[in-house]
């Protein structure tokens, strides 16, 4: 498995005013982002997601630990040539137009002017801003800024795209569009490493996730493995005769004539229900396992007070 990002034991702390206190933001973060996947970096506000991404892009310097990006150590300008980055709530020079912004940032990669014009046009179109290239950014809506932010992150045709909270603050349509754009990037062979606290969006597009809590990765791996190993409950549909006793350990969701829909919370109770059904010669119509959602998994990682 080729790695796009490898982080080992990353630590970062910030000093308070007058250096009287130290706030440890990252406490030994380790994770691996394989190439070609959509990797969700999840966690509550203040968990250290943005700090990690800023270290990867050279905006912050770690106290300790090791980062390897696309096979090279550190976040040197050479590595940043192959990375696209969309910061959280992107701020741009609002006196520039969308096309001027892409042209300006493209020049920082040394892309020739003529090539830049073509790339800008294609990118503006791909993010749905083809008619807004000549409009000053101060006139852009939040969703448009997020889209031009994604366009600027792709101006160098990067191998690795790092997005910090790309769907935050967007309306449902904007979120859907951003999700589609991220899926499109994966289809083009790019690795997408994005942070989010909007779990439903992450669940719908991520191949792998890491959950960060208080500066530490508490869960990491392929999403289907993480969720697949933790079935939350089963819905069992039975066709029963009169006098069928509902076994303990389950609850009745719907009962209509001879059909009954039961919810079973654990595997032992499921076996009990199925044994009882066989004994009573009831028809077992369906047993549907329901995996935990990412939200369930996420909530299970929260420290005591917050989880409640």
């Amino acid at each position: 498995m080729e790695e796009a990002v490898r982080i080992r034991d990353l630590n970062k702390s910030f000093r308070g005013h007058l250096s009287l206190s130290t706030h440890h933001v990252l406490r030994g973060v380790s994770l691996t982002v394989p190439k070609g996947v959509i990797y969700g970096f999840l966690g509550p506000n203040g968990a250290g997601k943005t700090t990690t991404l800023k270290i990867l892009t050279g905006l912050l310097f770690p106290d300790g630990g090791e980062i390897t990006v696309l096979g090279r150590t550190g976040a040197s300008p050479k590595i940043r040539r192959r990375i696209g980055f969309l910061p959280e709530t992107p701020y741009f020079y609002d006196y520039l137009t969308g096309a001027e912004l892409l042209s300006f940032l493209g020049r920082l990669f040394g892309i020739p002017k003529a090539e830049l014009a073509d790339r800008s046009e294609v990118l503006l179109k791909s993010v749905g801003l083809e008619n807004k290239g000549s409009v000053q950014l101060r006139k852009y809506s939040k969703g448009m800024l997020q889209r031009i932010g994604l366009a600027q992150a792709l101006i160098n045709d990067p191998e690795l795209v790092i997005l910090d909270e790309p769907v935050s603050g967007l309306d449902p349509v904007g979120r859907r569009e951003m999700r589609d754009l991220i899926l499109d990037l994966k289809a083009k062979g790019k690795t997408v490493f994005f942070s989010s606290h909007i779990l439903s969006d992450a669940e719908s597009i991520c191949d792998e996730v890491a959950i960060l809590m208080q500066g530490q990765v508490v869960k990491e791996g392929p999403l289907d493995k993480l969720l697949g190993s933790e079935i939350g409950f089963w819905d069992v549909t039975l066709r029963v005769g009169r006098g069928f006793q509902i076994p303990e350990g389950c609850s009745v969701l719907v009962q209509q004539d001879t059909q009954v829909l039961l919810r079973v919370e654990d595997e032992k109770s499921l076996e009990k229900v199925l044994d009882a059904a066989r004994e009573a010669k009831a028809g077992i119509r369906a047993v549907v396992p329901h995996k935990s959602s990412l939200e369930d998994l996420f909530m299970a990682q929260l420290p005591g007070e917050r989880a409640q």
Partner: peptide
Amino acid sequence: EKKTIYNILSKPLP
């Protein structure tokens, strides 16, 4: 302060 620097210095610009 305006955070415009994030878009600049995350590029390959020393």
